[in-house]
């Protein structure tokens, strides 16, 4: 089982990313569960979401305590070490939206990936909404689902320009994410 923890801020589409990932995995015939933040939902406040993916049926229903992958959608949360490293597995992967590329040293003990999702979001969507570029980065870094599956489930959810722009954001996220540690 692969367990993913998403960090972001309320209003940034943290839940949407986790939902799309779970649906992409389900589309591939896998078992997956998306669990939204179990805390308060406020615009701008740190929020989290969880995704579990497995080849077998998933019975457990509690939040992810020991993630294999941590994705940090919001760049201003990238230095919240206690939050990001909380409970993560020894060989975990951390994927950061890091426009500056300047991150705490401890992160280099893990598989560390960086992407400038801020730039991608501005280029593709014209505004600082990073969730789909970070979903792309997750796919590019780990391959836990295929890019095609993500695009497929996006087609069911978005349409028109919103779909096209977000597809571009996902593609660029997948392409531009870089392993640094």
């Amino acid at each position: 089982m692969i367990e993913v923890r998403w960090h972001g801020r309320g209003g940034q589409g943290v839940v949407t990313s986790s939902q799309l990932l779970s649906q992409a995995a389900i589309h591939e015939g896998k078992y997956a569960i998306h669990i939204p933040e179990f805390g308060p939902e406020r615009r701008g406040a740190p929020v989290r979401s969880y995704t579990r993916i497995d080849d077998n049926e998933i019975e457990i229903r509690y939040g992810v305590l020991h993630p294999d992958i941590v994705v940090v959608i919001d760049p201003t949360l990238a230095t919240y070490k206690d939050m990001i490293l909380d409970g993560i597995k020894k060989d975990a992967t951390i994927i950061l939206n890091s426009p500056g590329g300047d991150v705490p040293e401890e992160y280099y003990n893990f598989n560390l990936y960086l992407v400038d999702a801020y730039r991608i979001a501005l280029d593709t969507l014209g505004r600082a909404i990073y969730n789909t570029s970070m979903l792309g980065a997750l796919v590019g870094a780990t391959g836990i689902v295929s890019l095609e599956s993500v695009l497929k489930v996006m087609e069911a959810r978005f349409s028109g320009q919103v779909l096209h722009k977000n597809i571009e954001a996902v593609r660029r996220g997948a392409k531009e994410v870089k392993k640094v540690g």
């Binding site: 939902q19 779970s22 649906q23 078992y31 997956a32 998306h34």
Partner: peptide, 10 residues
Amino acid sequence: GFILTHSIEP
């Protein structure tokens, strides 16, 4: 509530 209402499952 939330655990099933808001969670996506196959």
